[in-house]
Amino acid sequence: MIEVKGLKKDFEDLKVLNGIDYKIEQGEKIVIIGPSGSGKSTFLRCLNLLEEPTGGSVWMEDVDITDPRNDINKMRQKMGMVFQHFNLFPHMTVLDNITFAPVKLKLQSKTEARENAMRLLNRIGLEDKAGEYPNKLSGGQKQRIAIVRALAMNPEVMLFDEPTSALDPEMVGEVLDLIRELAAEGMTMVIVTHEMGFAKEVATKVLFIDEGIIKEENTPAEFFDHPQNPRLQEFLSKVL
């Protein structure tokens, strides 16, 4: 579904990604872990071109999205993204946050989008917050609404960039539960996280990114119980 070929990214003199090749199949849940500064968030952000790769290419369903001739906006509509800091639109109500993009892009009529949004809000138990502004919500509520906002576009894949890192510990659970549900429904996902237990449970594959390359890739059981790469062994010994 998504194929990454020789992906490289430099920020000025700093080489963040040094050639990553990877293929993500439909329905897979890829969890990416690694030390901070390893390039894992940059890798994720290259998948929908929030960062423009310096080299290599990213293919989604046989379309090279790194080719400027292709309409990146069209491709992004198929890729939902959830950010560490939620990035809800503070000047819009919860409902408008969710319906704005599908209505503006003429993918759904106003009533369709509204119904869709209310159904999604109902699902996460926040239908009574539809008319509120984001500043009235807790971090966990904000993040769940950010997830729902991405879902409202009916994406084919969801990208999560440390979705629980900015949350109070007591709110991490509710957000992870929602991601778990989506995973169980078969959504293709790429998740950058520091939640090892969650990674073990949800992932079909776990990647360890360090120094801008994939140093280890394995099923969660093998990855956590029999790590091969010495850097990964060291990393896991510190975080587990």
Binding site: M79, N87, A101, L105
Partner: peptide
């Protein structure tokens, strides 16, 4: 916040919108 631009673009909205 730069995240606002990213959030908008990640939803598939164009730069102008």
């Amino acid at each position: 916040d730069a995240g606002q631009m990213e959030a908008g673009r990640s939803l598939g909205l164009g730069a102008a919108d």
